[in-house]
Amino acid sequence: MKEMEKSPSRGKLPKWKEEELEEVEYEPRSIKDILIEMKNISELIVDLAYSSLLFDNKELAEEVKYLEARMDTLNYEIRLIAMMAARNKRDAERLTAILQIAEAAETISDAAGDIVDIISLKLDHPILPRLIRESDEAIKKLVVSDKSKACNKSIAELRVASETGVRIITIRRGKKWIYAPKKDEKLRAGDIVIGVGPKEGLDKFNAFLEGKTEGL
């Protein structure tokens, strides 16, 4: 994992493990913000989990684990805030609906976590070797190096789609996730980008993000 080599201070734990162990600090965020994040994660994580299985991709599996741990934290936070927000019975009733959705979103992410665990079953061959062989599409986790010319350029400026055929599904920036990033979103050093596209295009994009090539 490239991002870990760059930051030795993070220690040897995988990132998702760290998220899991991290003590939950109470930072006042609105229920709305948390719920939006939970909804987004629950939608993204299903796609990522099955994809990691289909493409037998351990890096994606790790991303799923990370999101799953993040979801745990969010579900805890939203419960905490909801309890503090309820002033009367009507409030409490309306908030239970929100908590029910939050709980369901967490269940979805748990299920996604279970799906990627299947990869670690010692299968003689991946469940779907055919798909991996025949499809020229792949999905890949890429890291934007600080040496890359992509830093501080928007997806539109870089013409990622037209130059490489790669579609960026999501960008992770520290603890923040940007889902289905817009064209004017700028890439920054350290961003983790998940892209889907032709293998050649992904390799080209990867070399550029790693700073090995000057342009796309």
Partner: peptide, 12 residues
Amino acid sequence: STEMIADAARDI
């Protein structure tokens, strides 16, 4: 796991 996701969707 797929059933779990389906159940969660139903809860929503």
